[in-house]
C-alpha cells in the first residue's frame, strides 16, 4: 500500500510535466490540425537560459520567469516564421515542418553552444524529502502537482471566461465558421502558440530544476511522451490531454516497478503497443473529438 501511494505520487509528478506539454500540443492541434514536434524545443531553450543565468550566479527566482518567457517568445517566433506560411497546407507538410524545426533547433544548439551537455546545480528543494506518516514524500513532486493543477484550473477559466478562450474554442470547433464570426485567424493562432509556450515553459521549469543540465536534444523525449499523452486523450481535447498525461506518468512508474528487469528497457515499447491497439479499436482517442469532414 505504501509503495502504491508512493508510486502514485511519483507518477503524478512525472505525469504533470507530460500533461502540461500535452495540453499545449492538443490546443495547437485543435486550432490548426498540427502535431507540433517542435514543441519540445521550448524545454531546451529554457534549459539553456537557466544554464546561462545560473553560471552567472543569478538567483533561481529571477531565472525561472526568464526561462518561461523565453519559451513563450520562441513558440511565437516559430509560429510567425514557419507555421504561418504552411497554415493551410496538408497535415503531411505541417508535421514534417515541425520535425524540420526540431532538427534545426538541435543543430543550432550544437553549433551555438556545444554538443556536450552543460550542467547547472539543482536548488536544495529539488530533492528534499519529508516524512509524513509511513510515506517519504519528495517535496518537488508535490510542488509539481500543485503548479500543474493551478495551470489546468487557470486554463479552464481562461477558456470559459475570456474572449481569447472563446475564440480558441470556436476555432477548434470550426475554424472557417469562427473566422466568419469575426475571429482573427492570425491572432488566435499566435495566441494559442503563446499560451502553449507558457505551459511548456512552466513544464520545463518544473522538470529542469531536477534535471540540472542542458543538451541540444533534450526536448525530444518529453515531447514524444506529451504527444502520446495527447493522442491517448484524443487530439484536440484539453481535458483528454490532462488525463492522458497523468495516466502516462503513472503507467510508466508502474511498468518500471512491475516489469522484470530484462524487460525494463522495453517500457516505451509496451506503451507504444498499447497506443497502437487503442488507435485500431478507438481511433478517435479516449475522449471523442468530433471532426466530420463537410461534403
Amino acid at each position: 500500500m505504501t509503495q502504491f501511494v508512493q508510486n502514485l505520487i511519483d507518477g503524478l509528478g512525472n505525469g504533470s510535466t507530460y500533461a502540461l506539454l500535452a495540453v499545449g500540443v492538443s490546443m495547437l492541434f485543435g486550432v490548426m490540425h498540427l502535431v507540433n514536434f517542435a514543441h519540445g524545443e521550448l524545454l531546451t531553450i529554457g534549459a539553456y537560459v537557466i544554464y546561462g543565468m545560473r553560471s552567472n550566479d543569478i538567483s533561481w527566482w529571477a531565472t525561472i520567469p526568464v526561462a518561461i518567457l523565453s519559451a513563450v517568445m520562441l513558440s511565437m517566433l516559430i509560429e510567425f516564421v514557419a507555421f504561418r506560411r504552411v497554415r493551410t497546407a496538408s497535415a503531411f507538410t505541417l508535421l514534417l515542418t515541425s520535425f524540420a524545426i526540431e532538427i534545426l533547433s538541435h543543430a543550432a544548439w550544437r553549433i551555438g553552444v556545444s554538443s556536450t551537455p552543460r550542467r547547472f546545480e539543482a536548488p536544495d528543494i529539488a530533492f528534499k524529502v519529508v516524512e509524513i506518516g509511513p510515506f517519504n514524500i519528495e517535496v518537488w513532486d508535490v510542488v509539481s502537482i500543485a503548479v500543474a493543477v493551478a495551470c489546468f484550473i487557470g486554463t479552464a477559466i481562461m477558456l470559459r471566461t475570456t474572449m481569447f478562450g472563446l475564440s480558441i474554442r470556436a476555432a477548434s470547433e470550426d475554424f472557417d465558421a469562427a473566422r466568419l464570426m469575426g475571429v482573427k485567424a492570425n491572432r488566435v493562432i499566435s495566441g494559442a502558440f503563446a499560451f502553449a509556450g507558457l505551459l511548456a515553459g512552466i513544464a520545463g521549469a518544473i522538470w529542469l530544476v531536477r534535471r540540472g543540465q542542458a543538451d541540444p536534444r533534450m526536448g525530444a523525449e518529453p515531447l514524444l511522451k506529451a504527444v502520446i499523452a495527447a493522442i491517448i486523450g484524443g487530439l484536440g481535447s484539453l481535458p483528454g490531454a490532462v488525463v492522458g498525461g497523468l495516466s502516462l506518468g503513472i503507467a510508466e512508474v508502474y511498468f518500471r516497478s512491475w516489469l522484470p528487469s530484462d524487460l525494463q528497457g522495453l517500457t516505451d515499447s509496451f506503451v507504444f503497443v498499447v497506443i497502437a491497439i487503442l488507435f485500431v479499436v478507438r481511433p478517435q482517442g479516449l475522449f471523442n473529438v468530433q471532426s466530420a469532414e463537410r461534403v
Binding site: 504552411v86 524540420a100 524545426i101 534545426l104 538541435h106
Partner: peptide, 16 residues
C-alpha cells in the same frame, strides 16, 4: 560541429 544537420534541416524547412 553540426553544420551538415543545419544544412539538412534548413533545406528541408526552406522547401516545405
Amino acid at each position: 560541429d553540426g553544420l551538415p544537420d543545419l544544412f539538412l534541416a534548413g533545406s528541408l524547412l526552406a522547401v516545405l
